[in-house]
Design a protein around this nucleic acid. Structure first.
Lengths: 162, 162
DNA sequence: ATCGAGTATCTTGACTTCAAGATAATCCAT
DNA sequence: ATGGATTATCTTGAAGTCAAGATACTCGAT
């Protein structure tokens, strides 16, 4: 029993013609995501970051040496527009966490690289971040976590395959 | 196999000390939510709405006659701040979909009511919205939908009970 | 070689949200 | 009754995002 159930009960009363089961599933997914986001922002803030900046630094970090990608490569896995990417890199550059250099092979594009400071920041932040995530998901049992993960993955594949 | 798996594989290579299973679960939840949101915005846009305005109108509609709530009541189930609520009601009032009147019982607060136009708009929009949601979740079987819903509900309760 | 299509990034302007604080009314213990 | 705490909403300013368009470069067919 959660807040979404209350909403569904109201719709049932007012619009009994509607099948609200899908609304429940989607509503819960959105709310869970919103809660998750707010919880994780706290960890990011402890390292002077937000979700946006963490996301960029983390993508550079996990790409491996030399921790350098073009804005296009960066946004490839990030569900954001190019204008948003520009803004994110601008902020990080201003903070001294990344550098933007010209790409000698293609002068339309740039190369964004982690600075030493950026590397240290993201390495510390991601360690904390994983700890936070572990704490959050521990509200479910290991089996439930695995089941939820599998279902979300199937759902996700159906979106990303389009 | 989805895009999140690629991300986890990278982390495993770069930071084998981290247990990335929680990151996978949370990452997928966020991505699913983001996909869901974008898909549903299309339906809202077809009715001249966005998620924010739909959310307010829907809350008034499902509250039943006289389709009137205070801003505080409205935001109670909406995970938004009071300033955001003010802005949302402002927009809807400008569009002629709701009216804001003084509350005779408590002069600190207002009463926000659906206009006839607002009622017609949300009733048509929610019908389409449920159809969209039904289409989206049909990418999973009925059993999978039920299982996912149950797990999300449990997860959600653990947040909202805090 | 050259021109047009395509690609990569940035710019602009609008929109939504939030946090923090302001304003005003209500409630309650005295 | 009355002052202080609380409540309800609005205002302000900063931030992040997007869509659409601008700019500059590359590629491929001729």
């Amino acid at each position: 029993m959660d807040q979404v159930d209350d909403i569904l009960a109201q719709w049932n009363r007012e619009r009994p013609d509607l099948d609200v089961a899908p609304m429940g599933l989607i509503g819960r997914a959105n709310r869970v995501s919103q809660h998750l986001g707010r919880e994780m922002e706290k960890t990011f803030a402890a390292h002077g970051l937000n979700f946006a900046s963490f996301d960029v630094l983390a993508t550079l970090r996990r790409s491996g040496p030399p921790y350098s990608l073009s804005p296009g490569d960066l946004s490839a896995t990030m569900m954001i527009t190019s204008g948003t990417m520009t803004n994110r890199v601008d902020q990080l550059e201003k903070a001294g966490l990344v550098e933007r250099r010209l790409n000698p092979d293609d002068r339309r594009s740039f190369i964004v690289s982690l600075t030493d400071k950026g590397f240290a920041t993201i390495d510390a932040a991601v360690t904390d971040h994983v700890a936070t995530q572990t704490r959050i998901v521990s509200m479910l049992s290991k089996e439930e976590q695995a089941a939820l993960d599998a279902l979300l993955s199937k759902f996700l594949v159906s979106f990303e395959s389009v």
